[in-house]
């Protein structure tokens, strides 16, 4: 019986799912709903100076990389399952390649800030 390689991706899926569950809603609120319209969260919080200060700091980079990469790996695992369950398409491998490319792009972008 062939051993599955799922565990590696499942651990990433689990970590990303936990991060998204614990802070995901707050992140969407800050970056996409409250911050941009200066409601409750001041618009200053996400203006160029503040966003750059956060992303330029090594800890800020680490936090951004960790959170975004984990959400990437969590979501592609589940999207693969949806395509398998609803459309009988085995897309796990292409999706992992997409996640890898996005992770590399994220790292590149963060290092450049």
């Amino acid at each position: 019986m062939k051993r599955s390689n799922e565990p590696f991706f499942w651990l990433l899926f689990g970590a990303g799912g936990m991060v998204a569950a614990l802070i995901g809603a707050g992140l969407v609120l800050v970056t996409g709903l409250l911050g941009p319209v200066n409601l409750i969260v001041p618009g200053r919080a996400i203006d160029y100076a503040h966003a750059h200060a956060f992303a330029a700091h090594p800890l800020g980079k680490l936090a951004l990389f960790g959170v975004i990469a984990l959400i990437l790996w969590h979501s592609v695992h589940r999207m693969g399952e949806v395509l398998h369950d609803a459309a009988h398409i085995g897309a796990a491998v292409p999706l992992r390649i997409v996640a890898l490319l996005a992770t590399l792009a994220l790292g590149w972008i963060l290092l450049a800030i």
Binding site: M1, R3, S4, E6
Partner: peptide, 9 residues
């Protein structure tokens, strides 16, 4: 069995 694609995974 447990570790295979047909097992828990």
């Amino acid at each position: 069995v447990a570790n295979s694609e047909g097992g828990v995974w």
